[in-house]
Design a protein around this nucleic acid. Structure first.
Lengths: 136, 136
DNA sequence: TATACTGTAATTATAAATATTACAGTTTTA
DNA sequence: TAAAACTGTAATATTTATAATTACAGTATA
């Protein structure tokens, strides 16, 4: 799983936690132990897909644009990581039945696998994640 | 998904295809477009887990030790890739409810997710993969 | 008008994956 | 019995992918 996903979930959970005020990329970055620019890049994606809103200038930052109960990990996955489950195969080899087709065949298996995995992720909302973090 | 998995499946499928004679790492490597040493490393793992046998010396190579119908992609996944679904989180941050627990919380979600994904992979055998490659 | 932000591009640094080289050990076969 | 064709594995080098850093234009706030 690429790290965009975990950073996105982390950020969204933090926004749900700090829902009174906008959270800056620096604040989120410190919580996640990464660089603020990386947070801004990931959140830029989430913004494009309508999960959050941002505000520039002093006192600006990021806020959720939907209630945390209405955002699932599958929603996030689709934005940050769709297709990344796929094992990356080297070049195809046309001169071999197996080498010529393995990439495509595994592609089908993993495409279906992603759907199955997605149904699992869809059972968890950002609100659930926050609850799990707090009651830990 | 790490590439050990796809190389392992590729190799096993090729062994099923070439079941009359042992396949050398060079032969498999050419089919998969990778370096022979890499194949030998991956197959060394599969051998340790009893999926294949190897024979040194001239005319040597690798053969399946079970019928291809009796090996599923989940069997292979568990050997080559167990735990790799897990998103790797940066350091935990004890001074933040979310930062302190997110790694553990996501860990649980992905651990269950791996089981779900595993049930899917368990539906495909190496024999199925070969059939799909040939009838393509 | 200084300050604290976002947004994004460009560059540099670090880590991970992969290939390559090397060589000891094992069979086969000529 | 010696050359050839293999496995097994370690060490090193190369390449690629990730991540951090720097830089700076633009935007609110106070």
């Amino acid at each position: 799983m690429n790290s965009h996903f975990s950073l996105a979930v982390h950020s969204l959970t933090l926004l749900a936690h700090q829902s009174e005020r906008a959270a800056s990329s620096s604040f989120i970055a410190e919580s996640a132990s990464v660089h603020p620019v990386r947070i801004r890049k990931v959140l830029s994606l989430l913004k494009q897909h309508g999960l959050i809103r941002s505000k520039e200038g002093a006192g600006g930052g990021f806020v959720l644009s939907r209630p945390p109960e209405a955002v699932t990990l599958w929603d996030v996955y689709q934005i940050t990581s769709k297709g990344t489950l796929q094992p990356r195969c080297p070049e195809e080899n046309p001169s071999c039945d197996v080498g010529a087709n393995m990439k495509h065949v595994l592609g089908g298996v993993f495409s279906d696998g992603e759907s199955v995995f997605g149904e699992h992720l869809d059972q968890y909302t950002i609100a659930d994640m926050l609850k799990k973090c707090i009651t830990n």
